[in-house]
Design a protein around this nucleic acid. Sequence first.
RNA 1: GCCCCCGUGGCGGAACGGUAGACGCGGCGGACUCAAAAUCCGCGGCCGCAAGGCGUGGGAGUUCGAGUCUCCCCGGGGGCACCA
Length: 898
Amino acid sequence: MNDVPSPTDTLPAAAAGRPEPAAELRHDFRAAEPRWQAEWERRGCFAVPDVPDGSRPKYYVLEMFPYPSGKIHMGHVRNYTLGDVVARYKRARGHQVLHPMGWDAFGLPAENAARDRGVHPAAWTYQNIANMRAELKRMGLSLDWSREFATCDPEYYGQQQRLFVRLMRAGLVERRESWVNWDPVDNTVLANEQVIDGRGWRSGAPVEKKRLSQWFFAITKYAPALLAALDDLPRWPERVKTMQANWIGRSEGARVRFPLVEPVAGPEGRITEAEVFTTRPDTLFGMSFLAVAPEHPIAAAVAARDPKAAEFVAECRALGTSEAAIEQAEKRGYDTGLRVAHPFIEGATFPVWIANFVLMEYGTGAIFACPAGDQRDLDFARKYGLPVLPVVRPADAGEDFTVGDTAFTDDGIAFNSGFLDGLPTAEAKLAAIAKLEELGAGTRVVNWRLRDWGVSRQRYWGCPIPVIHCDSCGAVPVPEDQLPVRLPEDVDFSRPGNPLDHHPTWKHVACPSCGAPARRETDTCDTFVDSSWYFARFTAPRAGEPLVRAAADGWMPVDQYIGGIEHAILHLLYSRFFTRALHDTGELAAEEPFAGLFTQGMVTHASYRAADGRWLYPAEVEVRADGTAVARETGKAVTVGRGEKMSKSKNNTVDPGGIIDRYGADTARWFILSDNPPDRDMEWSEAGVAGASRFTQRLYRLVAGAAGGLPAPEAPLTAEPGSAARKLRQATHRTIAAVTEALEGFNFNVAVARLYELTNAVGEASGGEASGDAAPALGAARREALETLARLSAPMMPHLAEELWSLLRPAGRDGGAEALVAELDWPEADPALLAADTVKLAVQVLGKLRATIEVPVGTPEAEVLARAEAEENVQRAIDGRPIRKRIHVPGRIVNFVV
RNA sequence: GCCCCCGUGGCGGAACGGUAGACGCGGCGGACUCAAAAUCCGCGGCCGCAAGGCGUGGGAGUUCGAGUCUCCCCGGGGGCACCA
């Protein structure tokens, strides 16, 4: 990688031809890191049983498992470092910690590799996994690797097929024909969640509408539960919950039936009425027209007999998916000539239009329009000269209230509305619904934006849907004793379309039910299905059943889940649904998969773009002192982008492997944690890593230089009040408390800062060496401080922590009996040492700082106030005025009000 | 358009309603060195010689006291979006 300086100036210094001062005081991470990784492995520090044994409270830490693209990137490093801090900390706090790793291994890139390079998807995927596993292992993560699996293992997807047929039997999987989002580049269907701004989430191609037979998971059955349960997830970020709530999209209103004055012949029989969904039944008296979506059966019925209508519908469909339509969003309509009767106004009828702004997917695909109360309806009415009758006025407006080009959409008072006149909006809604129900013209309903989850994908490299289509028996689930339905290995990727469908023999099978010739389902599952239950599978990854109750119920839910915000909706919502479905089919007890969720920020890096649009590598650019930059080759100015997400296309990636080669895993981990709060985007910088590296060396030197001269570990910790030893002990114990609090709150950057402070304090305490009786006490205090540093930094820099610990407790070196830091409990802060002996108080006059005084803790208030008042600056600020009030917050502040 | 989050030194960022800027990066000065690197020591919000004054996007408010709480505005980021 070009922006990683060459390794010639790296450690050890001797390699670069420099003198190597005090070699024994240089931390050689290249030797130490693999050594400690091997020792953790040898001692089985991170392995746990399938069923938590109850000796300690369980804690399940999980990071979103990676897609095996071939190399780990900095986002992975950040993700897994954050998780490892939590895992190691919780382990030290006495929990039995499950911390597994696996691979989200199905997906289109493997098929693309097969097509472009002639490698089989399985070979490509497993090779990538091998590469990435080796990279991850170098990070020193405290993982139970014995639980590793890939979703493309037949042992995994076979169990998933088992779940599929069980969910099918439970009525949670359905096959039906529907309009689907078709990605013309990837040649497959996309879920609604995978369409972003009208384009496929992977290919970026404009999505087309197609009508196909598809498999659906009945996520809508869980819409109310998925929404309500968000309130019971206190350890989830608010914004993720908000995004999910918006996506589920609950709205209260009414369904209203409008009888057609003359019924029409639709494609599936006579249509006698139009049903609409509305959230504003209180505005029914302001109705101007009724509008249906171009895909609505009434539109189809009209189009069948009216060529102009047919033309309009065809135009809408063509435009419906193009970019232009999405951006322009011009409201257009066609008057069908049909009319509907009004439920409240005897004898009144209104025209029925086909309108391009009405969505077939939402509500009933038809609306009644009250232009005075809805901007879109108003725009439409003005364009086509339809009437506009205001029926809701602002509370402070009179009966003469009118609407111009802006609809009044707020709540107000009903008028021009018969029996609703004078009612505030909330009451008017209730009254209108009551009347509709009384007349049999409508009902109160709750409408949901969420659609069922279409999981069929016309791809090869995915979990085959375990169904067989039989002409007489229909869609028959594959019997469980015939699972897994394995992917065939001899497939042709050169032809477009679904390779499974092209396979000469694979799909031809006998019907499991009647034995007649039948066809295998050739669609595979959306890969989001694979990631919707992997967290539960980790609890018993080799079992012959999808889940083992004792294991799943023992470990689930995941106590702390960590990953990127980009999965706020898709993966997290699907997993929540799947967990509920598995709960309802008796597979596990948990109803929610993730009790705690943490969303990390991106890793960004500066980027450089030349005037011709080419992205330059950092090495091709000269950055000037004022922050501007020029291309080395041409001398022309380049645009400097601060903090852009690392991306190969922008040439601003940094390869984690190179960083670990040069600085070691601990330095990379430490920098990533220290830079900023983990939920924000962080900017990767060479200077920052170098600074982190300096600290690891400094800490090592501090411990290695002191270790030989320290008293034995058993030496008594005694320290006279006011002595240097006591001050150091207080700093140590305050650091324990502060780091603990910071780790609990995910404020890892603050934990790092506290460790810097303690390191500084130990360095200072060794400056003026104590003499006589004080020397042993200070020595013991220094041992305590250094041992504490090793133990508190272990979650973040686990290898260095072991190295330091082994210097301080040499019995553990090279496989000795001494415990490793990874096996130790978390240090306890001694409450008696948390408070200093004296405290500095700020003295304010009228809230402005005028002096600080230092008083012994516990000084009587009267004495504190007297000393504060006596300060010269305080007297000057008071300026002879009488003091009206004296405020004293012990240990914090004194404020005089004059 | 609706909803959410965020605005603090040159930079990343600290701060139970209680001394704003901890800690780090960069910078400056010094020591060591023939010199450099590494290391160590010191300085460091702004204005001012100083005394002092001003400072957490802007404006009001609550409070003895506001970066923190309330309201309005400005700016940045994100999510949803012809959602009836």
